[in-house]
């Protein structure tokens, strides 16, 4: 039983590590600020979430697991607020997003600079 939990935990930790790395790569590769935020949000949701689940599986039903869950809840509630504040501030300060790199002929969406 413990072996199964260990394997599950390792899988979740590996997944978390993978998604954190993907977020970091997105942060470096993406062309402009607004698209970089999408990369970072992968780290903040799936990367952090998987890693915390992996740690929770190792902790078992203890206070440590509850604290890990609190950290997860904190990330889930606070990080979108910070991201939204950043995006809004960037738009207010006049930073224009690059729009439509590919198939930029399709209509139907009210896109605004």
């Amino acid at each position: 039983m413990t072996i199964i939990i260990d394997i599950l935990s390792a899988v979740f930790l590996a997944g978390g590590a993978f998604f954190c790395l993907v977020g970091g790569i997105g942060l470096v590769r993406m062309p402009d600020f607004y698209t970089r935020m999408h990369g970072a949000s992968v780290t903040e949701t799936l990367g952090a979430g998987f890693m915390l689940i992996g740690l929770m599986l190792q902790a078992g039903l203890t206070l440590v697991a509850v604290k890990l869950a609190m950290i997860g809840l904190l990330i889930l509630f606070a990080s979108p607020t910070a991201t939204h504040a950043l995006a809004k501030a960037a738009l207010l300060s006049g930073l224009k997003p690059k729009l439509g790199e590919q198939h930029s002929g399709e209509g139907g969406i009210s896109s605004k600079p």
Binding site: G24, L27, R36, A40, T43, A82, L86, A89, S93, L95
Partner: peptide
């Protein structure tokens, strides 16, 4: 500045 701040938050 916002790129740097986003990096900081990450």
């Amino acid at each position: 500045v916002f790129d740097r701040l986003q990096a900081c938050s990450t």
